[in-house]
Simulated assay, not measured.
Amino acid sequence: MNVATRNIEAIEKRLWSAADNPRANSNYASNEYFMPVMGLVFLRHAYSRYLSVKEQIEPKLPSRGGKTRDLTKEDFSQQSAIYLRPKAQFDTLVALPDSADRK
């Protein structure tokens, strides 16, 4: 078994363990926590893609008078990525206190 296969198996094991945690520690059925969990998985993926594309876009942004143009949704859509406003980024949402509104 090669290293990549072992890494994938380790990741799968961690994911199944993480999925078991909500079932074991709550009274919720899987269909009640499925959407929030999948939403977080999607947001994490979108945020990773956002960061990767941002690194590619920023050096190419036009400047005028020493001021660089701000990033736009179009910059990201041209790269098949989603533009995430700062308050919608994964790290920002995860850092919010439990009492905060995440809508």
Rank of each mutant, 00 (worst) to 15 (best):
M1G: 11
N7E: 10
N7G: 02
N7F: 02
A10E: 09
A10V: 04
A10Q: 04
I11H: 05
I11S: 07
E12N: 11
K13D: 12
K13N: 13
R14I: 11
W16R: 11
W16Y: 07
S17W: 11
N21W: 15
N21Q: 14
P22F: 07
P22Y: 08
P22N: 09
R23A: 15
A24H: 06
N25T: 13
N25R: 08
N25V: 08
N25G: 06
N27Q: 13
Y28E: 00
A29I: 03
A29F: 00
S30H: 11
S30Y: 12
N31C: 01
E32H: 07
E32Q: 11
Y33L: 03
F34C: 01
F34R: 00
F34D: 00
M35F: 10
M35H: 13
P36T: 05
P36Q: 10
V37R: 09
M38Q: 12
G39Q: 08
G39H: 09
L40H: 14
V41F: 12
L43V: 10
R44P: 01
R44E: 14
H45T: 13
H45G: 12
A46S: 09
A46Q: 12
S48I: 14
S48F: 05
R49M: 07
L51N: 06
V53D: 03
V53W: 04
K54R: 15
Q56H: 04
Q56V: 07
I57W: 05
I57D: 06
E58I: 15
E58D: 15
E58Y: 13
E58L: 15
P59Q: 14
P59D: 15
P59C: 15
P59L: 15
P59T: 14
K60L: 13
K60Y: 06
K60P: 02
K60R: 15
L61I: 04
P62C: 07
P62V: 11
S63I: 11
R64E: 11
G65V: 03
G65T: 01
G65H: 07
G66C: 05
K67E: 14
T68V: 08
T68W: 04
R69L: 07
L71A: 05
L71R: 05
L71Y: 06
D75V: 02
F76W: 08
S77L: 04
S77M: 10
Q78R: 15
Q79E: 14
S80M: 12
I82L: 14
I82C: 10
I82H: 06
Y83H: 13
Y83N: 05
Y83I: 09
Y83C: 09
L84F: 09
R85F: 02
R85H: 12
R85E: 12
A88C: 12
Q89K: 10
F90E: 03
F90N: 03
F90Y: 05
F90K: 05
D91T: 09
D91A: 05
T92N: 04
L93C: 09
V94D: 02
V94L: 01
L96R: 06
L96V: 01
L96P: 07
P97C: 00
P97V: 02
D98I: 03
D98Q: 08
S99M: 00
S99D: 01
A100E: 01
A100D: 02
D101I: 11
R102K: 06
R102Y: 01
